[in-house]
Every structure is written in C-alpha cells, then in structure tokens.
Amino acid sequence: MVKIFGIELAPLHIPMERRLQTLAVQQWTLSFLFLGFGCLIVMIYLLFTSYYWIPLIYLVYYVYDRKKSARGGRRCQWIREWAVWKYFQQYFPITLIKTADLVPNKNYIMGFHPHGILSVSAFCHFATEGSGWSKIFPGLTPYLLVLPGHFQFPVYRDYFMAGGAVEASSESMKFLLTKHGTGNALGLVVGGALEALEAFPGRFNLKLANKKGFIKMALRTGACLVPMFSFGEHELFVQAENPEGSRLRNIQNWLTKYTGFSPPVFHGRGMLNYTFGLVPYRIPVYTVVGAAIEVQKDEHPSKEKIDDLHQTYLKELEKLFEAHKTKYGVPKDKHLHFIE
C-alpha cells in the first residue's frame, strides 16, 4: 500500500465487486448527511428561475401530504430491493441474526442498540432488504423510526419514506400499533441522538436509564418489546474524544437540545484511501435480535408498572448482550452501562 502525506491510498487493482460495495456505502452516507439540505437548496433556487412552478406545486403537495410520515409512510418494495442495498450490506458485511421467532399476528417495538454514529445497521435492516429482513422474519413489515425533522426536507422525505422510514413520534407509533393491523415491527433506536456522542469502540454506554416513553407506548398498545444489539456498530467510524464537561461535549449537547440532531465529530475512510473520509470502515456488523417480551395492554399504566417493564427490558437486553458478546469480539470483562 502507498502512503502520501500520511494518507494510505487504496490499491488500484481491487475487484469491481468491492468497488461497487464501497460506492454503495458512499452514496448512502452522502445522501444521509447532505441530500435533505441539497433538495431544499435546489427548491429555493428554482423559485428564482422560470421553473418556479415546480417548488410551488411541491409545496401544495407537501401541505396535503405532510402527515403521511406519521401515518405509516409510503413504502416502495421496489426501492427497498434495489441492488445497491445488497452491495451496501456486503461491504461490511451486516448480518441479521434471529434467536427466536416473531409471529405476524402481533405488533412489535424493536429496541435497537447502540445508536452508533449514523445507525448504519438499523438503516440496512429496517429501511432496505439488504440483510434479508423479509426472509428472516416473514410476515413482519419493518419500519425505521427516525427524527421527524427528516420529513421536513422536500423530495428527500419521499425518498426516505419509500424505504420504510416513518416519524419517531408517539402519534406515528400509536397509528402503526393500533390502526394499521398486525405484523408491524417498529425499529426504534431508543438511545436517541445524544447516544451517538457515546459511540466509541469498546465502550457500551446506552442512554436508557430514563428512556421510558417506548415502554409506556408498549403498555398502552399491548405491543411486544424486542431488544436488539448490533455488535460492531461502534467500530464503523472514529469519533473525536468528547468527555462530559469538555468544551466539545458542551457544544454538542447544546446543538442537540436545540436542533434535535447530534453533531458528532467523526471520520471514516475515503473512496480511494483508508485514512480519512465519510465512508464507514469495512468492519463486520452482527445484529442479534432477542426474544419478544410479552406486554399486557393497559391504556392507563401506573408509574410502577412502567418502571417494572422498563427494568425487565433492561435485563433482557443485558442478557442478550452477555450471551452473544464473546462470539462477536467483545471481551468478557466488557459490560453494558445504562446512563442518563
């Protein structure tokens, strides 16, 4: 391998299959980070051209359609099955591992952990067919729950919904769990945006100590809870150190509070180098899906009931992690830490 100015360049002679895998991941990263703002800028630009009618028509459509992201979205199986998502999955590769059957006559809130920098494997499992969700869990329709802000961007919102993304809001979850039949699997990255700031290799800090909204939703709707843990998610990028109390962490916390998006300072590799860029590192990711926790419906659960189910969920998640960690490269002395 050749190094220039400290940057390790990728060899010229790499199989086309691997090139296509890297390209598939790069397009996703750029889309996730920049496509929304790019679409918004294009629409604003068009307002000042002879094509001003395009954003005006879209605005009318958006006003009519704005609630769709909280009403089950508008998935398109053809887009979910694009070949690019198979290349995306094979790049790492990302593997979905079932430990128990989930029956399609129930609804599920799938608690996904950890958040990681960009929740790469959550996207692969819930918003594409790259990891083969429909074959592994036949009869279950996956939904990726994301921040409502994603659906404020023109065109991008439609593209994101086509993969199976919907709002991570109580309105959206309640609709899918009570008014959309059964067989719905809601992929919720429970730790939220702030947990991205805890994404470091070898550390397993999950912001779950006070996360009980999804527990309350499960009780009110009778949806089963299913813990998931994605081994390798924290190794996909390198994040700048940001200990609590540091200037960087204070700025990140402030921005997350007022924008809803966490701003981790991170890097991966590049398309043509292994040192710096926005492409995740080529590291295997194994997402283990636990057994369902049965929940008795209670539309007005008491605080004690919510706390008890929350503790049950944390214990089942911890049990899942401990049972599988050594298979996927986590030392025996590493454990989950539930933080506020």
Score class of each variant (00 low, 15 high):
L30S: 10
L20Q: 14
P104V: 02
R203E: 13
V330M: 02
G72K: 02
P331V: 06
F266Y: 15
T326N: 04
C39D: 07
K305M: 07
W133K: 13
L336Y: 05
D298N: 15
G73C: 11
V2N: 10
N250K: 15
L176W: 06
F153S: 03
S131L: 07
E233H: 04
R157K: 14
K98T: 05
I79Y: 08
K3W: 10
T49K: 08
K216Q: 15
V2Y: 12
V60N: 06
M16C: 00
W78P: 04
P201T: 08
E340H: 10
Y156M: 07
A292W: 10
P243A: 03
K319A: 13
S302F: 03
L236A: 13
P114K: 04
Y87Q: 10
A127Q: 02
I97T: 01
E198Q: 13
L314F: 04
P243T: 12
W254S: 00
L317I: 06
G6K: 10
K315A: 08
A122N: 09
T312L: 12
F321H: 06
V189D: 01
L314P: 00
P93N: 03
Y156D: 05
R220W: 07
S121M: 07
G139S: 06
F276Q: 12
Q311F: 08
L194S: 10
G164E: 06
P263F: 14
F5P: 00
H324K: 01
L272M: 13
H267E: 09
T49A: 01
C224N: 11
D307Q: 15
Y62C: 13
K332C: 05
M110Y: 11
Y286N: 05
I44W: 04
P263N: 11
P201L: 04
P93R: 02
E299D: 12
K303A: 14
Y143H: 14
L248P: 01
I44V: 14
P227I: 02
F48M: 11
L144P: 02
V289A: 06
G73E: 13
A70F: 07
V103G: 00
R80C: 15
K179W: 09
F266N: 02
I215F: 01
A122H: 08
P227C: 06
K207Q: 09
I136L: 11
K106E: 11
T256Q: 06
H125M: 10
H180E: 12
L206F: 04
F88L: 09
K98D: 09
L272C: 08
K334I: 05
S50Y: 08
W82F: 13
V155G: 09
F112M: 14
C76S: 15
L40Q: 05
Q77K: 14
S69C: 11
H125F: 13
Q296D: 04
L248R: 08
G163W: 09
G290H: 09
E8V: 09
P93S: 08
